[in-house]
């Protein structure tokens, strides 16, 4: 769905841009191609890394690690897994929901979901392409701390 919107939007805008200024449009497409090619060496290993990681640490194993009685150790494991692993948002929430069904605690699922979305150790290679180390480390630390606080709030409220 989002793919269709994204592609349609860019095709329409490219056409509109082409009608107004051919030269500028060519420059824009050239820039797009160049930045895409620059990103590939960082992107491909990230995708492979995630493939390997999710194969070794499968959802079954995750579900065993963060069961309802796993307590604060379970929260800790969730935070750790969530920070390192990466998955698309839709997969993340489906996993969270099936973990809840399988008996995982709300806090553990909160920790996992929040860090999966916000902390990106597996996408560090991409983040470092665009930002320096300092900002990358600070952004990820902020996301980690925020996820931890959110987990405690969930623990108190739900």
């Amino acid at each position: 769905m989002t793919t269709i919107i994204f592609y349609t939007l860019s095709i329409i805008l490219v056409l509109a841009s082409y009608l107004r200024d051919k030269k500028k449009t060519k420059l824009a497409l050239k820039k797009a191609y160049k930045s895409f090619m620059k990103l590939i060496p960082a992107l491909i290993p990230m995708l492979l890394f995630v493939g390997i990681l999710l194969t070794i640490v499968s959802p079954d194993i995750i579900s065993q690690l963060i069961g309802a009685k796993s307590g604060s150790l379970g929260v800790f494991i969730s935070m750790l897994l969530g920070s390192v692993i990466f998955m698309p948002g839709f997969v993340t929430f489906s996993l969270g929901s099936s973990l809840l069904d399988a008996g995982a605690g709300y806090m553990q699922v909160a920790a996992l979901v929040a860090t999966l979305m916000a902390v990106g150790i597996s996408s560090l290679s991409v983040e470092l392409q665009y930002f320096d180390k300092k900002l990358t480390i600070m952004r990820n630390s902020m996301a980690f701390i925020a996820s931890l606080v959110f987990t405690f709030i969930i623990g108190m409220v739900i």
């Binding site: 994204f6 592609y7 824009a28 497409l29 797009a32 930045s35 895409f36």
Partner: peptide, 9 residues
């Protein structure tokens, strides 16, 4: 790819 095209534009 569409994101890069939008960024280029």
């Amino acid at each position: 790819p569409p994101i890069f095209i939008l960024i280029g534009l």
